[in-house]
């Protein structure tokens, strides 16, 4: 799965110790191959993968559906738990729970949006 990210042309420090030799050699090799036209530049694909991160590995629709469901529910569960404990602590029984229920729903939607949103431009 990660083979597709081979072509990410990231400036890497070459002098990062003995362990760095292998990958920097790969980088120089692929750069040289690109210069000679032996390897098609896959910049667009690499950029897309770097931004999305996980969506490349989670190809199946079932996996995606499961992820979305878990993100939604876990944010809601955490928020409801926070609201419940704050209520018990401050003695404001229903109110904070109701507030955090709404906030948790919003956080769940924010999680899902982060999961499916188009990749951000690299200039951040």
């Amino acid at each position: 799965m990660s083979e597709e990210r081979d072509a990410i042309d990231r400036p890497r420090d070459v002098s990062s110790g003995p362990a760095g030799q292998g990958s920097s050699f790969e980088d120089r090799l692929s750069a040289a191959r690109r210069k000679q036209g032996l390897e098609a530049p896959r910049q667009d694909e690499a950029a897309a993968n770097a931004g999305v991160g996980l969506s490349a590995s989670q190809g199946s629709a079932l996996g995606m559906g499961m992820r979305v469901g878990i993100e939604l529910v876990s944010a809601l569960a955490v928020a409801v738990a926070i609201g419940w404990f704050l209520d018990g602590w401050l003695g404001t029984r229903p109110w904070l729970l109701m507030l955090f229920f709404v906030l948790g729903g919003a956080a769940g939607v924010a999680n899902v949006w982060r999961l499916v949103s188009p990749p951000k431009p690299p200039a951040k």
Binding site: M66, I70, S74, A79, A107
Partner: peptide, 25 residues
């Protein structure tokens, strides 16, 4: 006041979603 609680909840929901995903699968 709206964004910060939502982001904090979203951050705190990470361990739950991470563990529930593996466990449920």
């Amino acid at each position: 006041p709206l964004i910060i609680p939502v982001e904090v909840i979203s951050y705190l929901s990470r361990p739950l979603s991470l563990s529930v995903r593996l466990f449920a699968n």
